[in-house]
Design a protein around this nucleic acid. Structure first.
Lengths: 187, 187
DNA sequence: TTTTTAAGTGACTAATCACTCAACAAAAGT
DNA sequence: ACTTTTGTTGAGTGATTAGTCACTTAAAAA
């Protein structure tokens, strides 16, 4: 078992449960079942661990929302796939998603948001949105604003589905939620 | 000058700048220009300070978004006022808003979300939304889902306006943003 | 085989932290 | 005037924490 990975997993769990400020490194290594010292072999400092964890989860998220797009050929179909990819990933990885929410609005996210690989993924997403704007499939506004609105709606949907898990398989609900989302972007 | 208030203000600033986990109580009292001990005269513990800060800001926010509603008589006008109240408050109080974002997704928000005064404000808001749903002014979905969508969109709009401040007075932008919002709720 | 490099341990430490407390100052009561 | 209550200080304390280090084990490289 990769101890680095064990540490990242343990950190995710504890950070979400207790918050960054209430999770000592000793608790992380204990939860991971490894020695206290090894954490500082893989990560220079605690902040370094937080940064790397944030980057790796952000990468995973941004990758997963763009997956299987090539299998869909209609334009709105692609948008709907991104939408469902997003909330599906968030629900399947709720600890990771909660960690993202917690750190996204934090100063330590600033340190990290410039990471080239993450910027690249966002550019990809941005270009796709811009394409839709150009094709007049969605409202003619700044693509970054539209991306933000998407994330805002997806985040609130995920929070709702976390609170009411039985809605996850409620096709009527899913369809209505999609309508809320797609109506908001309609030109 | 009320030292309790000075402490809360200093805490807001530092928590947003450095994060909860990197802000010692000593830094808070220093920033507030008061002695280290007085913090524990007004707040039992550091967590208590965080809780009280969160509650007071949340109260202020929930109050302000519902203000002046009685001056408006058309239904959609009221909804639009809530919408603009929200992002105006968030922009005028960006530190406080950032603090809310940071703590909202945290385990320590759980401790506090049950606060009766906050629940009361949300009930008020919830009832208004439910009224709109009943009048078929907005989509027939669970009012809590709709509230969540509203907050999601408002949050993303505020983030955007924080990044591009010159858009704040761009009437075309404001109007389009309102359309995004109101379209999303259209029945 | 021998040497070098990397992975891993856990007791240890220096620094930091949340929080206390004895002393004092200023109102507020009486 | 005197007493009580409340606000305020900052040095001090014990506990906790991030991070180190001397050392062990394992695996590559030479």
């Amino acid at each position: 078992m990769d101890k680095r990975e064990l540490l990242l997993e343990a950190a995710t769990k504890l950070f979400v449960e207790r918050g960054l400020h209430a999770t000592p490194t000793s608790a992380i290594s204990k939860e991971a079942g490894v020695s206290a010292g090894i954490l500082f072999h893989y990560f220079k400092t605690k902040d370094d661990l937080i940064d790397e964890l944030y980057v790796s989860i952000k990468k995973e998220y941004t990758s997963s929302i763009m997956s299987d797009l090539d299998k869909i050929h209609s334009d709105l179909g692609k948008l709907r796939l991104i939408w469902s990819n997003s909330w599906n990933w968030a629900i399947d990885n709720d600890l990771k998603f909660k960690f993202l929410l917690q750190v996204d609005n934090t100063s330590c996210a600033e340190r990290v948001k410039t990471h080239p690989e993450i910027i690249a993924k966002y550019e990809l997403f941005h270009n796709l949105i811009q394409e839709y704007v150009d094709k007049e499939l969605i409202k003619n506004m700044d693509a970054y604003f539209i991306m933000g609105s998407m994330f805002g709606l997806i985040t609130s949907m995920v929070s709702y589905l976390t609170q009411f898990p039985d809605k996850r398989n409620d096709q009527l609900f899913i369809e209505q939620a999609w309508e809320v989302f797609s109506n908001s972007l309609r030109p």
